[in-house]
């Protein structure tokens, strides 16, 4: 009742939030709203930009690339992250903390540095192609950069920590007694995994997967460096329309589509997964 805030001011503390609110309003809300407005006002009032975006096969290809790569990246990330998160949750803590430190190091290493590493590793004369040829597995170097294969590898590398860390928390919270009960009732390990552990971790997996998918949809740096200009994704389209073509109408329209999909998927996540975890 004597809290400094209420004793010091008659107000409710709202004033403290004012600088941050003003900053975000002036340099976040207004600019984003202005950009989206330009999608229906430039070059003239109307929905023509959206008509072009939905109608042309060039853009259809870009949407396909974006959703396809994001989907594949999410799937691979989940398949690797689940066993790793499971192991990290139950491993002796000394081992776990070493692996944990590596995950954090990778996560905080500069994004361009990580992408550069993959550009060099995956190029025609790169270490991976040369090792595969030395082992006799392939005769000619594989094309691994400037296409969606490179983008997928680079993106999985970046997204793994975002999937492992939350999933580990989810698995740690599961009561081991439930799995003991499954074993006592005669479940084999495979049955316990399929019918107890995975369903219990399910909401965590789904919510992490959704987050990775959404983040992948809007990624710019890695797709443009590893994918090349021929394999464009949505974020690159927005940047290209605005920077090289100075077509603010189209850029705004593409940004609006990305925004709607992103917020829509986050709404799904809040609606379904947080409600489940709260129970």
């Amino acid at each position: 009742m004597f809290s400094a805030i209420t004793a010091g001011r008659r107000g409710s503390g709202l004033g403290f939030a004012l600088p941050a609110v003003l900053l975000l309003f002036a340099f976040f809300v207004v600019p984003v709203a202005a950009l989206l407005t330009r999608s229906v006002t430039e070059p003239e009032l109307g929905l023509q930009n959206y008509a072009v975006l939905v109608g042309s096969s060039t853009y259809a290809r870009i949407f396909f690339n974006t959703f396809f790569v994001s989907g594949v990246v999410t799937l691979i990330t989940v398949l690797i992250a689940f066993p790793v998160a499971w192991a990290l949750a139950i491993m002796p803590s000394r081992w776990a903390s070493i692996i944990f430190a590596i995950i954090l190091l990778s996560m905080w290493t500069n994004l361009l540095a990580r992408t550069y590493a993959w550009m060099v590793l995956l190029q025609q004369t790169g270490l991976i192609n040369r090792s595969l040829m030395a082992l006799g597995l392939i005769d000619a170097p594989l094309q691994l950069t400037n296409n969606l294969v490179g983008v997928t590898i680079g993106m999985v590398y970046i997204m793994l920590p975002f999937m492992i860390l939350p999933l580990m928390g989810v698995i740690k919270k599961i009561d081991p007694a439930i799995l003991q009960a499954a074993a006592l009732c005669g479940a084999t390990k495979a049955q316990a995994l399929r019918r107890v552990l995975i369903p219990l971790a399910g909401p965590g997996i789904a919510s992490g997967a959704l987050m990775v998918f959404v983040m992948s949809l809007g990624y710019y740096v890695t797709p443009s460096l590893l994918g090349g200009t021929a394999n464009m994704m949505l974020a690159e389209l927005i940047a290209q329309q605005v920077q090289s073509l100075v077509n603010w109408g189209m850029g705004g329209a593409a940004a609006f589509l990305l925004l709607v999909v992103t917020l829509g998927l986050y709404a799904v996540q809040l609606r379904f997964f947080d409600a489940k975890e709260a129970r």
């Binding site: 202005a34 950009l35 809007g218 974020a235 927005i238 605005v242 990305l258 925004l259 992103t262 986050y266």
Partner: peptide, 21 residues
């Protein structure tokens, strides 16, 4: 929630919007 939105939106949208402003 409002304070956290810039974290949720794809950076490229914020970048293009700020570039215009």
């Amino acid at each position: 929630a409002f304070f956290l939105t810039p974290m949720v939106l794809p950076v490229v949208i914020v970048a293009v919007a700020l570039y215009a402003a």
